[in-house]
């Protein structure tokens, strides 16, 4: 049997995704502090560790990395939501909405679904990444765009391109992600 070596990050990733898939949000070794963290800590990880720090090293490559990271999460969430639903889009979207709410990622609302044109637009209200952030010059939720792209890709089993066209941090009051089915 082939010995598939996993890095420590991959081992941790598997355990985190398994935890999400199980729907069990309690976590060991956090007896006093519990499973929840302040949103500003998440935003520090997202916008500093996976944002400005990555940008310092990768320059224009930073959004690609962040998008790709979000897509990995979206693919995992999609696999979870796609189980036992017999390819029913409405049920799939319902499960994704619930999952995003449970994980406090945001309130996902389908804004436009035009399958003939191959275009879907999903709103992410109360987006975890950019809530309380203002005065940016361009959309900053590449992680969420990638995540939505991964979710849609899983359902349709097609390549997709997800683009954030509105961002709360730009003053749009919501984040709108357009997904083109390719």
């Amino acid at each position: 049997m082939a010995n598939i070596h996993k890095s420590d990050y991959q081992i941790a990733q598997q355990q985190i995704l398994d935890g999400i898939i199980s729907g069990e949000f309690d976590i060991e070794n956090r007896k006093d502090l519990g499973p929840l963290i302040p949103i500003r800590l998440f935003q520090a990880l997202r916008m500093v560790a996976l944002g400005s720090n990555v940008e310092d090293i990768l320059g224009q490559g930073a959004p690609s990395l962040v998008y790709h990271s979000g897509q990995s999460l979206g693919l995992a969430m999609g696999q979870l939501a796609a189980a036992n639903i017999d390819k029913d889009l409405e049920t799939y979207v319902g499960k994704i909405k619930l999952l995003c709410r449970q994980l406090s990622i945001g309130l996902v609302v389908p804004d436009k679904v035009d399958l003939d044109a191959g275009i879907l637009e999903l709103r992410v209200d109360e987006c975890v990444s950019c809530a309380g952030i203002h005065n940016v010059s361009a959309p900053i939720c590449h992680f969420e765009a990638g995540m939505v792209g991964g979710i849609v890709k899983t359902f349709f089993n097609r390549n997709v391109k997800a683009t954030e066209t509105k961002c709360n941090a730009l003053g749009d009051k919501t984040c709108l992600i357009r997904v083109d089915l390719l």
Binding site: D56, Q60, P63, Y67
Partner: peptide, 15 residues
């Protein structure tokens, strides 16, 4: 994977 990698490698080299 190749698309993201190309951007990341190019970005890192440019930096």
């Amino acid at each position: 994977a190749i698309g993201a990698s190309v951007q990341v490698v190019f970005g890192a080299a440019a930096r």
